[in-house]
């Protein structure tokens, strides 16, 4: 084996983290920094200390996120561009949502969420189709649809946020306060988590499984909107007007998204396991990932879910302490959170 001295030198000292970044990575960082500065310059006067803190923390967070997962950059840009466009077209009047074509059919939160719903369901079908006939093309369509659906979902939430303020400055609030909103968040989070693992493992065969649970969530969203009018923006009751809530809910839903992903991978695992028992040879050319890989994804996503769930439960306790005067009151919601936590703790 002939090896050049340079390559040995290289293999001895791996380049540092920063040296491994590409110019694109730096463009990304500059972009985020510019957006942060612009936000601060425009709205800094309206922010309190906490909000400035959140802004300053989220900028490096977003930069690192984009460095770690490159696709996140295009995703963030798409969401930001579409949301800003929608907000710009809205101007100061909620009525524009009904009159401007662009809003009414594409970007108003209700429409964006309908697009999301439709695309998630189509993606599910595309993935299953791809799995059934071994069509990589169909799988790719599934991926593209999932990306688009996740984009529209988050855009829908962003625009909804703005719409709530257009309804009245005292009504405005971050859209994580009712079942309808958090289910959208859940669908988006689960979708993104799945896309992450799909890229990591270069395997699209699990799409159908994971998207099934998202489609179920979509079914609930639609039912809730049409039967119960859940899509209407309601003002917040006093107990919900808390920073803790704003942190608690998204954290929790990253956790739920990860748990849901793990559960569906678990279903795939059971399929594989049964097939392995019946006919070990069939596994060799199986379309699904190997058992070890499935186990790995499952472990990782439960670990992620568990970590976020732990933080979310603690945040929930802090919120309860401030709103209701006790960090833990054994109410059914809290108790079930504990049961879920203990369950996963026992599994880990």
């Amino acid at each position: 084996m002939s090896v050049s001295p340079e390559s040995i030198q290289e293999s001895l000292e791996r380049p540092s983290f920063f040296a491994r970044l590409t110019p694109y990575d730096w463009v990304w960082a500059l972009l985020v920094a510019a957006a942060t500065i612009a936000t601060y310059a425009l709205y800094g006067g309206l922010m309190d200390g906490y909000e400035v803190g959140i802004l300053l923390m989220s900028a490096p967070g977003l930069v690192l996120f984009g460095w770690g997962w490159k696709s996140m950059r295009s995703y963030t840009l798409a969401v930001a561009a579409l949301s800003l466009l929608a907000i710009w077209v809205y101007g100061d009047s909620l009525a524009n949502g009904e009159s401007k074509f662009f809003l009414k059919y594409i970007l108003a939160s209700q429409s964006a969420i309908m697009w999301m719903s439709a695309m998630f369901v189509m993606a599910t079908a595309a993935y299953y189709f791809g799995l059934a006939i071994r069509s990589e093309f169909s799988n790719r369509v599934g991926s593209a649809l999932t990306w688009s659906a996740s984009t529209m979902g988050l855009v829908g939430l962003m625009v909804r946020w703005r719409e709530s303020y257009l309804m009245g400055s005292d009504i405005g609030h971050i859209p994580v306060s009712n079942l309808y909103e958090v289910f959208i968040l859940f669908a988006v989070m689960t979708g993104l988590l799945y896309l992450f693992y799909e890229q990591q493992y270069r395997n699209r065969s699990l799409g159908g499984f994971v998207l099934t649970v998202i489609s179920a969530a979509v079914a609930f969203i639609l039912w809730y909107a049409f039967e119960r009018g859940g899509h209407q923006i309601q003002p917040l009751v006093p107990a919900l007007q808390s920073y803790w809530m704003k942190l608690h809910v998204p954290t929790n839903f990253i956790g739920y998204g990860a748990f849901a992903l793990a559960a569906m991978v678990g279903v795939a695992y059971l399929f594989q396991e049964r097939r392995a028992k019946r006919n070990p040879a069939a596994l060799a050319n199986s379309r699904l990932p190997s058992l070890e890989q499935l186990d790995d994804v499952m472990y990782k996503s439960i670990a992620l879910g568990f970590a976020f769930f732990t933080v979310a439960t603690v945040l929930g306790a802090m919120w309860a302490a401030e709103a209701w005067g006790g960090y833990w009151s054994w109410d059914p919601k809290e108790t079930w959170a504990l049961i879920v936590w203990l369950n996963y703790a026992a599994w880990l």
């Binding site: 568990f306 970590a307 732990t310 306790a317």
Partner: peptide
């Protein structure tokens, strides 16, 4: 309460260490 919060912080740190 503060004891519980302290424990929560330890638990969170611990969980992240153990898992990551």
């Amino acid at each position: 309460k503060d004891i519980v919060y302290l424990g929560c912080v330890m638990l969170m740190v611990g969980v992240f260490f153990m898992l990551y």
